[in-house]
Amino acid sequence: MDVLTVPEHCPDYRGEPLRLGILASGNGSNFTAIVEAISAQTLPAVITGVIYNNPGAGVVQRAQAAGVKSHLVNHRDYPDRESFDQDIVSTLKNWGTEWVVMAGWMRQATEVLLQPFGAQVLNIHPSLLPAFPGIKAVERALAAGVKITGCTVHRVVLAVDSGPIIAQAAVPVLPGDTVASLHARIQQQEHRLYPQAILWAAVGNS
């Protein structure tokens, strides 16, 4: 049985719609989950745009289908992480972004990205942090033989996957699980958890 550690609704939020800028490196399924939550009026937000760092990333097609603009900032074109993040910040600020939402963003943030947005930079990670931070979290959970793993939404700080936890969802590891099967079930919970946790973070900030 999965466990969701935020309420299904956050009725205490009475502010203006959250202005979300999405950072994605891959397929963008969490982006779609956020779009669907906005459409269902369970997340009072607008998406200012999507920044992606890999040419051909699947999130581009998802953004086009949702009518959301996307912009490539290819980290390979920059001499260091700071200059890469500076272009990201400039784009996000030009869009009027207030919250930075990492959705499968496979780049480590620098102070250049974090300082302008403070605690309003969020990430989702496929483990129950503090267990298995960093890359290959699902593979490492299987290798460790744990019985329960899951996903975590947290505020982003300089140290990888170590920021304050906003919400978590637990996922059992089943006999015969592969990386693919376990990751698929974790993603199901990510799609449910992330939109709610974004709102919960905003309630906590208000």
Score class of each variant (00 low, 15 high):
residue 133 P to D: 06
residue 71 H to A: 01
residue 152 T to L: 03
residue 134 G to A: 12
residue 105 W to V: 05
residue 138 V to W: 01
residue 110 T to Q: 08
residue 159 A to Y: 05
residue 126 P to C: 10
residue 118 G to W: 05
residue 93 K to S: 09
residue 72 L to H: 06
residue 139 E to L: 06
residue 93 K to Q: 15
residue 151 C to W: 00
residue 68 V to R: 01
residue 83 S to D: 09
residue 149 T to P: 02
residue 98 E to N: 10
residue 161 D to A: 06
residue 151 C to I: 10
residue 153 V to P: 05
residue 80 D to A: 09
residue 71 H to R: 14
residue 89 V to E: 07
residue 121 V to N: 01
residue 132 F to C: 10
residue 75 H to M: 09
residue 72 L to D: 02
residue 91 T to E: 11
residue 106 M to N: 09
residue 154 H to T: 10
residue 150 G to D: 06
residue 119 A to I: 05
residue 120 Q to L: 06
residue 149 T to M: 06
residue 70 S to C: 12
residue 85 D to I: 01
residue 80 D to C: 13
residue 113 L to G: 07
residue 98 E to Y: 04
residue 112 V to D: 03
residue 86 Q to Y: 05
residue 80 D to H: 09
residue 138 V to R: 04
residue 98 E to G: 13
residue 152 T to H: 11
residue 81 R to D: 12
residue 126 P to M: 11
residue 119 A to T: 12
residue 95 W to L: 15
residue 109 A to R: 01
residue 106 M to H: 07
residue 152 T to I: 10
residue 151 C to Y: 01
residue 126 P to W: 06
residue 75 H to S: 13
residue 92 L to T: 02
residue 104 G to H: 05
residue 156 V to L: 08
residue 153 V to C: 13
residue 118 G to Y: 08
residue 129 L to H: 10
residue 155 R to W: 07
residue 76 R to I: 00
residue 83 S to G: 03
residue 132 F to L: 11
residue 86 Q to P: 01
residue 151 C to G: 02
residue 93 K to V: 14
residue 130 P to V: 07
residue 127 S to P: 13
residue 129 L to A: 11
residue 142 L to G: 09
residue 116 P to E: 09
residue 77 D to V: 06
residue 83 S to Y: 03
residue 99 W to D: 03
residue 104 G to E: 00
residue 90 S to N: 14
residue 125 H to W: 07
residue 101 V to R: 01
residue 121 V to K: 00
residue 74 N to H: 09
residue 157 V to T: 14
residue 88 I to T: 01
residue 71 H to N: 11
residue 156 V to M: 00
residue 143 A to T: 11
residue 130 P to E: 08
residue 151 C to F: 05
residue 69 K to A: 14
residue 94 N to K: 14
residue 97 T to M: 03
residue 119 A to S: 14
residue 147 K to T: 12
residue 148 I to P: 02
residue 116 P to R: 10
residue 144 A to E: 13
residue 102 M to N: 10
residue 78 Y to G: 03
residue 125 H to N: 06
residue 91 T to R: 14
residue 103 A to S: 15
residue 74 N to R: 12
residue 158 L to A: 13
residue 77 D to Q: 15
residue 76 R to T: 08
residue 116 P to T: 06
residue 115 Q to Y: 05
residue 138 V to P: 08
residue 107 R to K: 15
residue 142 L to P: 05
residue 69 K to M: 09
residue 145 G to L: 10
residue 156 V to W: 00
residue 81 R to C: 04
residue 146 V to W: 06
residue 111 E to I: 07
residue 82 E to R: 11
residue 68 V to I: 15
